[in-house]
């Protein structure tokens, strides 16, 4: 039977590295992918995650195994990735050729009821989102990754980032808005294109 997190942590607390192996097998991929989306650089993301596991080994005695391990560990990785991203402050420039795909992408990203075909996004689309993501401030990038990749709720983001829920709402919103802004900028350099808003309710009663 597969070892539970609780059993793995108990073993690790007894300095049995097999416990660490179990946790790494279970969480390393999700952790490094989250870190990668935040720092935008694979070697750096791998460094962040490996550091997190080394630190986990050193501080595991402080962890209360009654608490869920996964969210706790991912929170730690995301915070480390945020620090790394702030040190790194990526800058990526966009060129004219990238603007063509952006307008439809804006609609995709702002449509709350996308159809399945729309969701099957192309490699071009992914590349544009990647570049727009890179233009966000690191904290906004974390907000996007936590909300839309890790699937955190605002409450969980609030706990993770130690910010009030209101701040989280604002952070997610501004991140989304800036993301849209960069994609709009891609599509229309003169900023004349307004992104399509989410479905508005009819004013009819």
């Amino acid at each position: 039977m597969e070892e539970t997190d609780f059993q793995a942590i108990t073993r690790l607390k007894r300095s049995d590295l097999a416990g660490l192996d179990t946790l790494m097998i279970r969480y390393q991929l999700r952790a490094v992918r989250a870190a990668y989306l935040i720092v935008g650089d694979r070697p750096l993301a791998e460094d962040v995650v490996q550091d997190a596991f080394v630190r986990l080994h050193q501080t595991i005695h402080q962890f209360d195994e009654a608490r869920p391990f996964g969210p706790w560990f991912l929170r730690s990785v995301v915070n480390d990735a945020l620090k790394a991203a702030k040190r790194q402050q990526r800058q990526i420039s966009l060129d004219e050729a990238e603007r063509a795909q952006a307008a439809s992408l804006i609609e995709t990203l702002t449509d709350p009821h996308p159809d399945p075909e729309t969701l099957a996004v192309s490699a071009e689309t992914r590349r544009e989102v990647w570049q727009a993501l890179a233009r966000l401030a690191p904290e906004q990038r974390v907000a996007i990754v936590q909300r839309y990749y890790l699937g955190y709720s605002e409450a969980e983001m609030s706990a993770s980032l130690q910010r009030p829920t209101g701040t989280i709402k604002w952070l997610v919103h501004t991140a989304r808005r800036r993301l849209r802004h960069w994609l709009v900028a891609l599509a229309a350099p003169d900023s004349s294109v307004e992104p399509k808003r989410g479905a508005k309710r009819s004013s009819e009663p």
């Binding site: 390393q28 989250a34 995650v49 989102v129």
Partner: peptide, 23 residues
């Protein structure tokens, strides 16, 4: 799902293959 979710998953999979192992 928000439209961003599948895109982010695709981006993450593009950048980090599933076979990574840092043990």
């Amino acid at each position: 799902n928000h439209p961003l979710t599948p895109i982010l998953h695709d981006l993450a999979e593009d950048g980090i293959p599933a076979e990574v192992d840092y043990r």
